[in-house]
Amino acid sequence: MSPSVSPPEDLDAVDYIGVTKSAYDALGYPTYRWAENEDPPAFVPPSVELADATVVVIASGGVYRVGDVGFTHKDDTSHREIPSDTPDDQLRVTHFAYDQTAARTDPSVVFPLQAVRSLVDDGVVGALADVALTFMGGIYSQRRLHEELVPALVQRTNELGADVALLVPV
């Protein structure tokens, strides 16, 4: 699949690249350059069946746990590690760029830890990794993203023994 692939027409998907460009143009801001990757991604088969797979949840919605240091809203490339048995009532959300009304009522809308835990409980999924990895997206420095956040998430995903990573942007 090439990056230029369009959504099925009957979806009527919102073109957020276009919406962002219009909003920034109106404010006189320079055009934001979204990541563009023409080259195909790596594509590895999972090594075990889903019922035996360990899943790590990785979410960019600014989720933290009560007692954690919150995220700054300016290119914060740190991440938090949320124990996978953390109940939803200990989860909090902070972010500068999306409406958090729903996420603060039900964190599962941006961080489906509870949903995966339910699949594990019923034997559909093998296990959750010991922790989920969370950060605050909207990092404008591509350099810092590549040098700081990406290597940390790759390293932790592998250290956690994950067979599958479930990534959840907002």
């Binding site: 699949m1 090439s2 990056p3 230029s4 692939v5 369009s6 959504p7 979806l11 998907a13 919102v14 073109d15 957020y16 690249i17 276009g18 979204w34 990541a35 563009e36 990757n37 023409e38 080259d39 195909p40 991604p41 790596a42 594509f43 590895v44 088969p45 999972p46 990785i58 960019s60 489906p112 997206g137 993203l145 590549h146 956040l149 990406v150 290597p151 998430l153 790759v154 995903t157 592998n158 994950a162 067979d163 599958v164 990573a165 479930l166 990534l167 959840v168 942007p169």
Partner: peptide, 29 residues
């Protein structure tokens, strides 16, 4: 998030990404 998915997959772990922003995800590939 597409960039992170690509990097994790390249390290040998299968990834799957939820998205509600088609154009952004298609661009990140």
């Amino acid at each position: 998030m597409g960039l992170i998915a690509r990097a994790i997959e390249a390290s040998g772990v299968a990834t799957t990404t939820l998205t509600s922003a088609w154009s952004i995800t298609a661009s990140a590939n």
